[in-house]
Design a binder for these strands. Structure first.
Length: 394
DNA sequence: ATGTCC
């Protein structure tokens, strides 16, 4: 701890060293959000960047009420890591890149029975959004094949059953149109005012929210299975972690509601913090200091990080300005390959530029800020092999 | 972020 934990105000802290680039607007949004009624504490992560009104890459702890607008439309968005049976040594990039031609369409009849049984098992009763299941979506969502590049903690890797011989698959997606519809309905009735505990609409929102979280998990599972089928491999999920949600949490003896907006939980075991498509991702183990709960330093660390971590490298440039900044220097063809030797499949021109590695911070700085803050230790570094965004859309 | 905006 120390150097990479900044106190912004009494309520607001930021996990970032002084030389980590954070946009001023994002800090302003962080402070503004801390002034909402019932807000107890706000913690910015080292990938903090501006959003529409509220910043992304932050955790917000309230008492007595929740703010659905803080969670946003992509309820349940998160990262799932699958180990495939495919061998890294046997990867042929040209061949691999050709296997994903129909991967964006709604799942066909051959999937219907698994969709029905999975929905029942997860108590998902909502109808009307099944065509989104198994689809990645836009924005920063992706499916990426990766190889374990460097190992720092072999026993942790063993615990997860991960081997560097096997190709890994990281899926980043959420609840698609379902989460969007839940937010739209909430805003129509309550604007950005939030909901008080005890209100009928509070219960109603939380129940829909929780279902959207399960829907998002199922979506990632179906995306993974679909990509596995496309490469004629099977696989097993080693983790699935949501970074957009609100849930009940006791923080330093206080019962309340923890909102995470692009903030990875540090209380759910191992997590993957992805870099941009041209950078490494990091498998990390959250650290819990083995001191008594009464220890002031521990309480302070909990207050300043709110059981949360970065959810990625963090945008350096705003969406939409990237084509202008990169267009002169890079042709579209230049962006289908990365400096780490990986391939990119992205048929949408704006997305190709918006999600370019240059638009993101270096993931290593985000990781080292959290290491310095005493929040994580790095287990392994994952190298991108092929990143799938979308086939069409140009 | 969004079966994405005409």
């Amino acid at each position: 701890m120390g150097k990479s934990v900044q106190k912004i105000t009494d309520k607001v802290s930021l996990i970032a060293s002084a030389d980590t680039w954070i946009e001023g607007l994002a800090i302003q949004q962080l402070i503004k959000t801390s002034e909402l009624n019932g807000m107890q504490r706000v913690a910015g992560m080292p990938d903090l960047h501006p959003g529409r009104g509220y910043p992304i890459g932050a955790a917000f702890f309230t008492t007595n009420k929740i703010y659905p607008a803080l969670v946003g439309n992509d309820i349940g968005c998160g990262m799932a890591l699958w180990q495939t049976t495919a061998k890294v040594a046997k990867v042929n990039l040209d061949k691999l890149a050709k296997k994903f031609t129909h991967i964006e369409l709604p799942l066909d009849e051959s999937w219907f029975s698994i969709i029905e049984s999975s929905k029942a098992a997860k108590n998902i009763t909502i109808k009307g959004y099944d065509s989104a299941l198994g689809t990645i979506g836009g924005g920063n969502h992706f499916a990426e094949f990766q190889a374990i590049d460097e190992i720092y903690n072999q026993s942790a890797l063993d615990e997860l059953g991960l081997s560097r011989k096997h190709l890994q698959l990281l899926v980043h997606s959420g609840s698609r149109g379902l989460g969007q519809s839940i937010l739209v309905e909430h805003i129509a009735g309550h604007n950005h005012n939030g909901l008080c505990e005890g209100d009928a609409d509070f219960k109603d929102y939380m129940s829909k929210h929780d279902e959207a979280v399960r829907f998002a998990e199922l979506n990632r599972e179906l995306i993974a299975k679909r990509f596995l089928e496309a490469i004629r491999a099977s696989g097993e999920r080693s983790l699935d972690i949501n970074h957009n949600l609100v849930s009940a949490k006791n923080i330093n003896g206080c019962d309340g509601w923890l909102h995470r907006k692009g903030a990875t939980p540090s209380d759910k075991g191992y997590v993957v913090i992805p870099g941009s498509r041209g950078d490494y991702s990091y498998l990390v183990k959250p650290v819990f200091t083995a001191l008594s709960d009464n220890d002031l330093a521990v309480q302070e660390s909990i207050n300043s990080s709110l059981f949360s971590l970065a959810h990625g490298a963090g945008r350096k440039w705003q969406r939409g300005e990237c084509h202008g900044r990169l267009g002169h220097k890079y042709k579209r063809e230049d962006l289908y390959r990365t400096a780490l030797g990986s391939r990119v499949i992205c048929g949408n021109k704006e997305l190709l530029y918006d999600e370019a590695p240059q638009a993101y911070k270096k993931c290593e700085t985000v990781i080292s800020d959290m290491v310095d803050a005493g929040l994580i230790e790095v287990v392994a570094k994952l190298r991108p092999v092929l990143t799938f965004k979308t086939n069409g859309g140009c």
